[in-house]
Design a protein around this nucleic acid. Structure first.
Lengths: 391, 391
DNA sequence: GGCTGTTCTTTTCCTCTGTCAATGAAAGAA
DNA sequence: TTCTTTCATTGACAGAGGAAAAGAACAGCC
């Protein structure tokens, strides 16, 4: 395990302080009494935890107390000072690096991206480093210090060691990315799987706030799934988890690169849809946008392909819900652009496959800009910075 | 939530004491130094935690130090005094009640069962109560006090409230079982889902000891699955979790009572196998044992049915492993009698569906006597008695 | 048999965290 | 102005766990 403790002081020193800070971070401005209620701490403990955090500027009093309560001394809400620290999040894909500068509340301040021509670590790392340096310069312009760098990579990533064990898209094996990036940038680095990073962002700053069990399903070039169980992101004993894309839905379905037939990814991921659209229409459709346009223009064959894809996704979600019984499933990803075409299939297939009360699970969608992946990486950096674990 | 704290003092008062006790409970006799290492406590803290537990007799010094280590002061291992307290575990099925008297180490001392003719709570509860009283008498014979009663019921059970929300097999709805049983027996009662109870038993006393993530798959009249993630049993936000039986494997497969086609349960559970065997052989096969005999005698059609069932189970396990990445999967249940017929199908289907390093997951079998379900219930009672959470 | 080295266990402070209960602060209401 | 109500802080306190030193129990060695 790498030592990240050699870096600057983290805002939360005691468990209680960490708990208080993450609570305020996720649940917006809160009065001290409210914090005490949520964290199950005494109000005295909250005061003691808040003070040092305010002294170093991570928390500030929220003076905007428009709605005065009826009686008694007015409450003094506290919120996180978003501009107190910045973080950089980087998402590395096979042909692009996306980087964002995010504040302490994980709001994107600046976004940059560059295309990649080569995928070897030796080619990617310098590009990444220069992109990070650009953003460091931007941060300097804001007069805010960057306190951490998060890097999201698809595949089998060991966050504890900061090593990319195997990334199929990048064709990387056992790359000690955190160590390399740390020496190149001088920042504390957190490396994590891309879907898990996105899940962390949802857990702390998105639709997963306050939930101890939820799933995030990403639809796009691949089908991924991030899981939060008992308030913690699931990583899997062997680095693999949430591999919803290779749930085999139909033994007679199209072959998947994993060797099986009818995997969700072989039916509902962008490449699979494009392949099917080409086959049905005979046209050389190469982008998801083109396929989408064909479907929207009313082509029944193409619409059917999307309907099937929606069904596959719905069944996959049903499997997750039956197995884990999460409170909520968040559907996201670039593929969400076609959600109107998926929706019915997802809804019906989910309703059919969800067993008993599991059907009560709230299935929602959440649009995802391409920068969001990098924001997820920033969220992991914030998480490491605070040095705590769960909600 | 019911108040169980009104009962007798639990052995562990502080978090550390609870941690120490569960560690010794699960990991057999341990020296204090070893306990300190495993719990990450200081040796001083271990001494302080162990002393009161020894004074009240829950822990004893294990004098059987046959293998003396080479040098230094000999270590003094500590173990749980199994006979210090007894627990009763009860499993209620549609046509039978199984009850066991178990010691603090969850070893079965006495087992009893009676058949049921009616399933209404009004008919079942008196039978259960009399069975419990029989075992209480047995315990008196041992001169040991019974400190808790665990009841395992299939279906949607809310352990925190002690209410059976819905049990399809028993046709029970919203039965406040814990409260009723508490007044009837005077014991602290824990009610839980049967598969979860079995999972708890494995986690604390079986093949799940020391693992933070594992799955238990039960094969028999139904196909069930208990999950442990991050060291805690998964219960699901809506009471449903581990519903592996209704994972749809084959859209063209046989219809399932849940409304879908090709569910694992519709292929690999006992009733499904019997149905298929009757169809293939034309004979009036009514018990699993008969079907098994036909298969063992070499009937290729019947063997094929078992092979298909094994494949379905293997694919279901693959789904669990891809989703959660557990360290181990334990296959158990009455259906394990046919494991030799399942084995190849399970192995192959699992190997094919497991994605990447998830295939490294250890898949093992574990025979399950019919009393084991009741033992699981006893394990939940022990867990409640200790009043702690995880390993 | 005493001495020494080694390892396990206990004891003795000591720190530090969070709670309790009382006090202070900031309003509106009477 | 004074009272009431609610929020926030303070200071004394209990108790949990850690560090370090002492104690205990053995084997081996002279």
């Amino acid at each position: 395990m790498r030592s990240t403790s050699s870096h600057e002081a983290v805002p939360a020193t005691t468990p209680a302080a960490s708990l208080v800070f993450t609570t305020v971070l996720s649940h917006g401005p809160l009065t001290r009494t409210e914090i005490a209620r949520r964290t199950m701490l005494s109000s005295a403990a909250v005061t003691k935890a808040v003070r040092p955090l305010m002294e170093v500027g991570y928390l500030v009093e929220d003076l905007n107390d428009g709605a005065r309560s009826a009686l008694g001394r007015p409450a003094n809400p506290v919120r996180v000072n978003a501009g107190r620290a910045f973080f950089i999040g980087v998402k590395v894909t096979g042909d692009e690096i996306i980087a964002v500068l995010a504040d302490l509340c994980c709001r994107i301040r600046v976004a940059r991206h560059i295309r990649l021509t080569h995928r070897e670590p030796e080619a990617v790392l310098p590009s990444m480093t220069s992109l990070v340096h650009e953003l460091l310069l931007e941060a300097e312009g804001f007069g805010v210090q960057v306190r951490g760098l998060g890097i999201a990579v698809s595949g089998d990533v060991d966050r504890a060691d900061g090593v990319v064990r195997y990334s199929p898209f990048l064709d990387w094996r056992d790359v000690p990315l955190a160590g390399i990036a740390e020496t190149a940038t001088g920042l504390p680095v957190t490396v994590d799987n891309d879907v898990r990073a996105l899940t962390v962002a949802e857990q702390w700053f998105g639709a997963g706030v306050g939930l101890s069990d939820f799933a995030l399903v990403t639809v796009g070039a691949g089908i991924g799934c991030g899981l939060v169980v008992h308030g913690q992101v699931v990583s899997g004993a062997h680095g693999v988890a949430g591999e919803i894309g290779h749930l085999s839905i139909d033994p007679l379905g199209p072959p998947c690169h994993c060797g099986n037939n009818g995997c969700v990814e072989a039916i509902a991921a962008d490449p699979a849809i494009l392949r099917a659209v080409r086959k049905v229409t005979g046209r050389a459709v190469t982008t998801a946008a083109e396929a989408l346009e064909l479907a929207r223009s009313g082509d029944p064959g193409v619409r059917e392909i999307y309907a099937r894809a929606g069904e596959a996704i719905g069944r996959a979600i049903g499997a997750v819900v039956n197995l884990l019984g999460p409170e909520r499933v968040i559907i996201s990803g670039e593929g969400l652009a076609a959600y109107d075409l998926f929706a019915e299939g997802i809804r019906n297939a989910f309703a059919a496959s969800a067993f008993g009360t599991a059907a009560e699970c709230d299935v929602m969608t959440r649009p995802l800009s391409f920068e969001e992946w990098a924001r997820g990486a920033a969220a992991t950096a914030i998480q490491s910075f605070i040095g705590s674990d769960t909600d």
